[in-house]
Amino acid sequence: MQLLRSIGQIIVRPTAAVAVALLVGGILLIFAGYSPLTAYGVMWKGAFGSMNNIAETLLKSTPLILIGSGLAVAFRSGIWNIGAEGQLYAGAVAATLAGIIFTGLPAFILVPVVLVAGALSGALWGGLAGFLKVRFGASEIVTTIMLNFLAIIATSFLVTGPMIEEVGKFPQTAQIAEAAHLPRILVPTRLHVGFLLSLGVAAVTYLLLFKSSRGYALRTVGISPDAARYAGINVGRGLLAAMAISGGAAGLAGAVEVSGLTFRLYQGISPGYGFDGIAVALLANNNPIGVIFTGILFGALRSGSEVMQMNAQVPSVLVSVIQGVVLLSAAAFGVFKITITNKQNEE
């Protein structure tokens, strides 16, 4: 019974939420004068119709899974990191720098260096908000949003000025060294090893949260800081760690984008992965294993919508609507139950 119920919590409700969202989206399509069946058919094909489409879907899922796993840790620890977007940029900047500066290194050293640089930079960017929270009680929701602006604008500054490519024509950096590129895993598609890395990060964060002593401490902090202090847990250190871990995962996502896909840094390198990542984590009830599935779902919606726009002339904005309705109906189906009660207990 208990098991059945938890399966229901994990699978049935999110699925139902997606179904409702597709239904609502379908009605909107009819009103806008499109055939929902055609549009969804094109969308499905766009997401999963060929090897290449599947690869593109997984490519878009990769940063979402990385960010979602990290945010699952933050949200379970009771700290509301809204700054994954900024942390992604911080990671992308550091990874690009590493990829441009250390050109002489062989791939088996340079790739890890680039990834670690991205993760560290994101962890510091996130950890800064954590520090402000623990030291001065500044709301992490406010500071992380501010730090988003700061990171995004700083990136714009860097790629139009100090880090602009030698040729100087476009607001973008030079290419990173070839040795810094992530190996492809499904030639001829663009899918790279970063996807496997994201699965690994999801698994590790899952083990950390639910199977380790530190995870127990973090979850206790997230549910009830009073109980955590009573248990002898250092609440401030927990919050700082959660913030650094989630920032690190987002920074890693930025590094993976640069070293796996774009090979250089430019403005708007992320189409909002950091914000979608919040939805990905919440929809998975802050369980990193669930994040793999919700991450692929959101990745599929993204890649499918691009094809839908091209082939059925349906504006891809519609997919934002569907994503929004997925979240709303997920809330209605009680997927976020645990998260919400956690929040109440905090007060």
Partner: peptide
């Protein structure tokens, strides 16, 4: 409710509140 137990945790998890590590 605020301190003695962690309500969303299982009973087993609540027994190790001081000794989880």
């Amino acid at each position: 409710h605020k301190m003695g137990v962690v309500l969303p945790f299982s009973i087993a998890e609540n027994f190790i509140l001081h000794d989880f590590d």
